[in-house]
């Protein structure tokens, strides 16, 4: 079976690719973690030492794979139930994670694929290279995916993952987190990041979180508890927006698109 039908997403390159504009905003690399962050030890031998070479985006960077809804299963975005044999689902505090995928101009990014993975409520991953002594939950797999709607909204139902220890310093723990992979509408927007939970004291002790240069950057990955949206007697809601790179646009270009 073909997993997903893929179509091209052409960004705003109206009237031919050689027009000015249409490219992505330059990535602010000082806002992202540096490649070499010695407190996160594995980065020491896995970080390029030479500066990356810049070039203006071309069609290959301004397009990307597009995934269509028809290939998604009904439980893909429900981590409580998508691996479970028990109708009760996975063990752990039930939560809904919802938010929007936006670009840097605040526009929703529609119909883009969002993939997530996480540990179970005890902090254990279902993975052959994982040896933490906390037990697996037979009803929890740990993966989910969905497409954003036309406004860029997405939603997952899951359980709150537990913190877990990891080999780095003598006593390093990851704060509770959910990994996110997002495509956007072009190859140049591709991003992997992690979501943290409001109020978790482990956030500020974590060497991986600490690779982010500024407290503002870190705060932007902390999901907020949304009590108004919370479903009584069922699940708390955490809100988490993801921002992808924006793209240059001029009024001239908008008119060329017929807007």
């Amino acid at each position: 079976m073909n997993a997903f039908k893929q179509k091209q997403a052409v960004l705003q390159t109206p009237g031919g690719h050689d027009r000015p504009g249409g490219g992505l905003y330059a990535r602010d690399r000082s806002w992202h973690p540096a490649a070499l962050t010695p407190a996160y030890k594995t980065s020491v031998t896995r970080s390029p030492t030479r500066a990356p070479i810049s070039f203006p985006t071309t069609l290959g960077e301004e397009t990307g794979p597009v995934f269509t809804r028809d290939r998604l299963g009904p439980l893909d975005a429900d981590l409580v139930h998508n691996f479970a044999r028990s109708p009760d689902g996975a063990i752990g505090p039930r939560i809904v994670v919802q938010g929007r995928v936006l670009d840097e101009d605040g526009r929703g990014v529609p119909h883009t694929l969002v993939e997530v993975w996480q540990a179970n409520a005890g902090g254990r991953y279902r993975h052959k290279k994982e040896g933490y002594l906390a037990p697996l939950d037979p009803d929890f797999g740990g993966c989910g995916r969905c497409l954003t709607d036309e406004a860029g909204r997405y939603e997952f139902r899951t359980i709150q993952p537990g913190p877990y220890p990891w080999p780095n310093g003598p006593n390093d723990w990851r704060p509770a987190h959910i990994h996110f992979s997002v495509f956007g509408q072009s190859w140049g927007q591709r991003l992997i990041t992690q979501m943290y939970f409001d109020g978790d004291p482990m956030i500020w002790r974590c060497p991986i979180v600490g690779t982010i240069p500024s407290p503002e950057g870190i705060e932007s990955l902390v999901a907020r508890l949304d009590m108004e949206a919370t479903i009584p007697m069922d699940a708390r809601v955490y809100r988490f927006d993801i921002v992808l790179r924006g793209r240059r646009q001029t009024l001239f270009e908008n008119r060329m698109e017929g807007l």
């Binding site: 993975h127 994982e130 990994h179 992979s181 921002v243």
Partner: peptide, 21 residues
């Protein structure tokens, strides 16, 4: 008024769970 891109974080050792389950 422009937003900042979400900072990247490592894919980590368990990336396969979410991306190649």
């Amino acid at each position: 008024a422009r937003l900042k891109e979400s900072p990247s974080q490592t894919a980590g050792p368990y990336v396969h769970i979410g991306m190649l389950p």
